[in-house]
Design a protein around this nucleic acid. Structure first.
Length: 259
DNA sequence: ATGGCCTGATCTTCAGGA
């Protein structure tokens, strides 16, 4: 089984690349983030024509997540139990589904904006809710993974230049501690291999030649439980999908499983 | 080749991204 996660930065804008990529890559299950659409405008019908069912949690121009699968789609849960919400509003940042033998969450962790900003506190609270929501499955015997845009670089090697991130979000102790706490539930960071260069970056800023200069970050992560991690036969970043016109600023992370 | 931001809405400017 081939499973992937991809922050598409608008599924409407990305559709001309997403649909061919699903087929050419042979992806069975795709976790999508930043659909930037509401559920009604999500291209469920076009995906269905390719043989994929969709579970969508999306409400408008911001955020939005989905799981699309051609190997079954059951037990759908839209939204994170215990989601703290931001300024009193719960945002569409999580959706869960069981796809054949594997259960997945597609998550879009809050950005945090700046250290000390209310959005940063929200980010840390959201991680706590995520941990509570996945703990049982993380410790379970069914292959299970939380895939998505975590908006945290787990180590200093996961950013192109640590010195440029001093005082910034995505690299702080509390954010990395939240990742560590999540792993304590029984999850392992399934680190993909890079297809080029030394670091498996998954995001490159659109600005200032970020991609050609490989000024990237690894913030799109696959956290799998023990049965999931044991079944992994390969994992890589499909950086080719970051190339050219009409690319998202994130590349897909692809994982092959023997399940 | 991989080339100096992109997206959608509040729409000719802006918020948000990270």
């Amino acid at each position: 089984m081939r499973i992937a996660t991809w922050n598409v930065n608008s599924i409407t804008a990305r559709l001309p690349r997403l649909l061919p990529w699903l087929e050419s890559s042979g992806t069975d299950v795709l976790c999508i983030q930043e659909t930037k659409t509401n559920a009604e405008q999500f291209p469920s019908e076009q995906l269905r024509e390719l043989g994929y069912e969709s579970a969508v949690n999306a409400t408008g121009r911001w955020n939005g997540v989905a799981v699309v699968s051609r190997v079954g789609l059951e037990d759908v849960v839209k939204g994170l139990p215990g989601d703290p919400g931001y300024e009193g509003v719960e945002e569409p940042r999580a959706v869960r589904a069981t796809c054949g033998p594997v259960r997945v969450w597609s998550v879009y962790v809050p950005n945090g904006r700046e250290v000390g900003h209310p959005h940063y506190a929200y980010k840390l609270q959201w991680f706590e809710a995520l941990k509570a929501a996945v703990a049982d499955d993380a410790a379970g015997s069914r292959p299970f993974a939380v895939l998505g845009d975590y908006n945290v670089a787990p180590t200093d090697d996961d950013v192109f230049d640590r010195s440029l991130f001093e005082g910034s979000t995505h690299v702080t102790g509390p954010e990395r501690a939240a990742l560590a706490a999540l792993r304590e539930t029984g999850l392992t960071d399934v680190v993909p291999r890079p297809l080029k260069y030394d670091h498996p970056f998954t995001y490159w800023d659109y600005r200032q030649l970020g991609f050609p200069k490989n000024r990237g970050m690894r913030i799109d992560l696959v956290y799998g439980n023990a049965p999931f991690a044991k079944a992994v036969t390969d994992a890589y970043v499909d950086r080719d999908e970051r190339k050219g016109k009409g690319a998202s600023d994130h590349a897909p992370v692809v994982v092959d499983l023997d399940v």
